[in-house]
């Protein structure tokens, strides 16, 4: 077993490098990803090693980044699009929803839409407006797409490679506030499949589901809760769409309590959807209603007060208390 310690940014870079090495049809495209290596340096050095023909600095047009990726995919390429920030994906929304998601179905299986759209998403870096959003539910809602999010350098390294090799289009949500945090990466074994959830902490009192940036926050909350005698089970969903439901069902049947943590606003969110599905699957095991700890139903706030918007350890602990208070 070869294990190395990398930041998530470096792990993504290494994963992209492997993908470029393994398949000559893999292309990276996006704004500033070549010479600059991307504004987060995720593609650092890749243009130098693989050429400007495969690591493409694109004009500033997100709809065109995705729209031309569609044509390249039809031609047999595997484009990996970098959208510079979450809030810049909306100009490409039409191409993603109307073409990327539907062309395989429209052509009755002829077109392969093996496209990855990388979104540095969510907040926590003190950015200006449009640089901190969590748009995963928009894409999860659209049939034809898959949505995944990595929470550790190990998962980042493997999930990006698995996403690129996959034949369906994938929205790849990268928690930008975790880019610079280090973790062990097993270079030989991914450990689990791209669409599988991961129980990252075992517990018996309450199940907390999270993904991306919220996994670490939730684990911290679970540690604090443990000092108060509460046993919190934490599941990293990893695949937001489709959900890996079976381990969630097993966990909630065991604990009888469910909390979902994410940064997106609460309405029509993935948290709401997970609660809906588990309410049906685990109805007779539930001892409290499913709760969400999420952003508020407001635009993302200015940086100085963003911590009041994002799910915090305290808000997760509060939700655990509220869930336990039902006492059923």
């Amino acid at each position: 077993m070869t294990t190395t310690s990398l930041t998530m940014a470096k792990a993504l870079n290494a994963g992209l490098r492997k993908a470029l090495e393994n398949d000559p049809k893999v292309l990276l495209m996006g704004e500033d990803i070549g010479k600059l290596g991307g504004v987060f340096r995720i593609t650092d050095g890749l243009q130098k090693d693989f050429g400007a023909d495969r690591v493409i600095d694109s004009p500033l047009a997100e709809s065109a980044i995705v729209g031309t990726a569609v044509g390249l995919a039809i031609r047999g390429y595997r484009p990996v699009c970098e959208i510079q920030f979450d809030g810049f994906v909306y100009p490409a929304f039409d191409q993603i929803v109307s073409q990327v998601a539907k062309l395989r179905s429209r052509t009755e299986g002829v077109y392969r839409m093996g496209i990855v759209i990388r979104l540095p998403f969510a907040g926590g870096i003190g950015a200006v407006e449009h640089h901190s959003e969590s748009p995963e539910a928009y894409f999860a809602h659209t049939a034809g797409l898959r949505v995944v999010s990595c929470s550790t350098p190990h998962d980042a390294y493997w999930m990006i490679q698995e996403a690129i090799a996959h034949d369906d289009p994938i929205i790849f949500c990268e928690p930008k506030c975790r880019y610079w945090e280090k973790g062990d990466v097993d270079l030989d074994n991914p450990g689990r499949g791209l669409f599988e959830a991961n129980r990252v902490r075992e517990g018996s009192d309450v199940t907390v589901v999270a993904w991306g940036p919220s996994v670490k926050t939730t684990l911290r909350a679970a540690e604090v809760a443990a000092t108060e005698g509460r046993s919190v089970e934490v599941i990293d969903a990893r695949s937001v769409a489709p959900l890996d439901l079976a381990p969630l069902v097993a966990s909630v049947k065991k604990t009888g309590r469910l909390i979902v943590v994410h940064e997106a606003p609460p309405t029509a969110s993935m948290g709401a959807d997970i609660i809906r599905r588990l309410s049906e699957e685990c109805f007779y095991s539930l001892r409290a209603p499913g709760l969400q700890v999420s952003g508020y139903h407001t635009p993302y706030p200015p940086a100085r007060i963003e911590d009041a918007f994002r799910p915090s350890v305290d808000r997760i602990l509060d939700a655990i208390d509220r869930s336990m208070d039902y006492g059923l």
Binding site: T68, I74, R75, Q99, T107, E108
Partner: peptide, 27 residues
Amino acid sequence: DPQHYRFSTPTIVLGDQTLTAVGYAMG
């Protein structure tokens, strides 16, 4: 079958297909 005829199926959201064509040409 668009690959067989080398002719894509109709795009109804007009304009989208011009980018598809450019991407295909880049390929």
